[in-house]
Structures are given as structure tokens and as C-alpha cells.
Design a protein around this nucleic acid. Structure first.
Length: 307
DNA sequence: TAAAGTCAAGATCAT
DNA sequence: ATGATCTTGACTTTA
């Protein structure tokens, strides 16, 4: 079990997702931004290691406009060595990586243009992970997409689009139950049809349930991940007290988190904490997972290499 | 320098 | 048809 947080570190003082306006795009600006983003990403991972935070979601803004037609420079070649260096660091320390393209990636869209842009964005994400030479356990998580008034047809459309994705995308792609459209049961059905692993979002399952108890849900999702996918990834959050329904909590409630650990034991999984204060909560959660006994202890020599 | 306005991309629901 | 919300930050312009 590894614990992580998404994209942003609030204490280190740099961000790996710096961007700029499309209107001010230039190849030089892109190169300069990516160089800074990669340097920061490496710094964040080093900082995470100090706190035994071994799971991390890399921001989709690592390479701004990467899938936009305006960007034609071969950034993966320009920064090949830096990507490999970061990848080596990740492997050496047994870290797990995910990425989460945002809401604009809709594989099951009716509009072919949206599908095309979505596919380009997925290729970009796969290219980043490939450039780091990470294996198939580094995942790209997406929601199923729109319902468009016909859930059945839209789920089928997902399956048929999925069947035509590039292999280097498919080997990393996983779907996640969302908070308003596709439930866990929907995702499991899509798994039946396509084989795509299902990432379990605990909070979405609470907000948009389909009947399964949490422990049962974890077991059902676990069964959708093959050995080459690595162990189950779970997104964990709780309701912000007093906030609108579905709003993520500001900080981890250790009692609730430990209850989650207790009710899912002994299932093994990597947990992404979607909590607003980021690494602060992750550090506390590592403590909980450690006491629980399932936390991942990296080999002392650091030889988890697959080079 | 601080505040306000705006940003590649979508879906859905309220008005 | 239009705008707000999701969710949220941070870039960019304006005061």
C-alpha cells in the first residue's frame, strides 16, 4: 500500500504545472516552461520520498498545450534525458504514478471532433509516462464520459471507441466511477465488456452509489486489475463539512480514514488522497497506513529497478 | 502591487 | 438559448 496526493505540493514553493495563455504561445515559451515544470516535478518527488509518500499524480499541465495543434515541437525528444532521469528516480524508489486528464477528455462523445481531441490528449499523457520508461502500472484515469440521455448507448459507444485506441494508451487506461453520471456498477459492466480496469473512487461512490458496500466495492474493483496493471488504485476523499455535496474536504479526518482502512483490510491498494491540503494530509495518512500494517516499505537498497 | 477578469477543451442542470 | 456549476488555480490585464 502506497499513499499519495495529486499534482500540487503546497510547501515546496514550485509548481510542476506552470502554464501560460494560448495567445502567448511560442516554442521558446513552451520549452522554458517545460524545463521548469520537470525540474519542479523531480523536486516534489524527492520531497515526497522524505515523507515516504510513494504515490503521486503527475499534473496534466506538465507540458502545456501538448495535444493542441499549436504545439509542434518534439518536447519528448528535447527533454528525453530529463524524463528518463525522473523515471529512474521513480523506479529506484518503488514509486507509483498516475495521471488524470481533465473533464474535456470524453471518449464516448457523439461529436467526432471531441473524440479526436480526447484521443490526442490521451496520447500526450501516454507519451509522458512512456518518456519516463515507466511500466504498465503507471495509469491514466478517466471518467466514462457523457450520458447524452441514453446511458446504454453511451456505454456501448465507450466500448467501441475503447477498442480502437492505441495500444500505448490502452495499456495504461483505467476508468473511474464519477460523482454524477457513471456509478461503480456501470464501470464494472464496462469492464466486463472491454477488460478496462476500474479505479475505485470512494467519495464518488458515496455521493453516487450503486449499492455495494465499501469492502465489496474494493474487492470487485481489485478483480479488474491484472498483474501487469499493478494493484488497485483508489481515490479517497470525504465530504467537506458544511460544504456543498460532493465538495472535497479541506483536510484528512484521520478517524474516518482509519475506519476505511479497517473495513477494507486486508485488501492491498494504492490510495490517492484527493484532499485540498495535499501533502499535509498524505503525511498523516502514511502514519495511519503504517500503523495499519499494510503500508509499503521500500527495499533498503532501493533495487526495484526494471531497467 | 493588488485586485479583477479570464483562461483550449464538456456535460448537465437551472433559468 | 444562456449562464452557473463542477473545481480550482494561476496567468494577464487593469486599476
Amino acid at each position: 500500500m502506497k499513499i499519495g496526493y495529486p499534482c500540487i505540493n503546497r510547501s515546496i514553493g514550485c509548481t510542476s504545472g506552470r502554464t501560460f495563455r494560448l495567445a502567448s504561445y511560442s516554442d521558446e515559451r513552451l520549452e522554458e516552461t517545460v524545463r521548469g515544470n520537470l525540474r519542479c516535478l523531480h523536486a516534489i518527488l524527492r520531497e515526497n520520498l522524505k515523507g515516504s509518500i510513494l504515490f503521486f499524480r503527475i499534473t496534466s499541465d506538465l507540458v502545456p498545450f501538448a495535444s493542441h495543434p499549436v504545439c509542434t515541437v518534439p518536447w519528448q525528444e528535447t527533454f528525453a534525458e530529463t524524463f528518463q532521469e525522473i523515471g529512474r528516480f521513480i523506479r529506484e524508489h518503488g514509486m507509483r504514478i498516475s495521471m488524470h486528464p481533465d473533464q474535456f477528455v470524453i471518449i464516448n462523445a457523439k461529436d467526432p471532433g471531441i473524440v479526436e481531441r480526447s484521443v490526442a490528449e490521451l496520447r500526450y499523457h501516454a507519451t509522458v509516462l512512456d518518456a519516463m520508461h515507466l511500466d504498465g502500472t503507471a495509469k491514466i484515469q478517466v471518467h466514462v464520459g457523457g450520458v447524452y440521455g441514453d446511458r446504454e448507448a453511451s456505454m456501448n459507444r465507450f466500448a467501441s471507441k475503447y477498442a480502437h485506441l492505441d495500444e500505448n494508451v490502452v495499456r495504461r487506461l483505467v476508468i473511474e466511477n464519477d460523482d454524477s453520471r457513471y456509478t461503480l456498477a456501470d464501470c464494472l459492466r464496462i469492464h466486463e465488456e472491454t477488460g478496462v480496469p476500474v479505479l475505485f473512487d470512494v467519495f464518488h461512490h458515496q455521493v453516487n452509489p450503486s449499492g455495494e458496500a465499501v469492502a465489496e466495492a474494493v474487492d470487485l474493483c481489485t478483480a479488474t486489475w491484472r498483474p501487469k496493471d499493478g494493484i488497485l488504485m483508489t481515490d479517497y476523499s470525504t465530504q467537506m463539512p458544511g460544504g456543498r455535496k460532493g465538495r472535497h474536504a479541506e483536510s484528512l479526518d484521520p478517524a474516518l480514514f482509519e475506519e476505511f482502512l479497517a473495513e477494507t483490510a486486508p485488501a492491498d491498494m494504492d490510495i490517492m488522497l484527493e484532499i485540498k491540503d495535499k501533502e499535509k494530509s498524505a503525511l498523516r495518512a502514511v502514519g495511519s497506513a503504517c500503523r495499519d500494517g499494510r503500508w509499503f516499505r521500500p527495499a533498503q537498497s532501493g533495487h526495484n529497478d526494471v531497467d
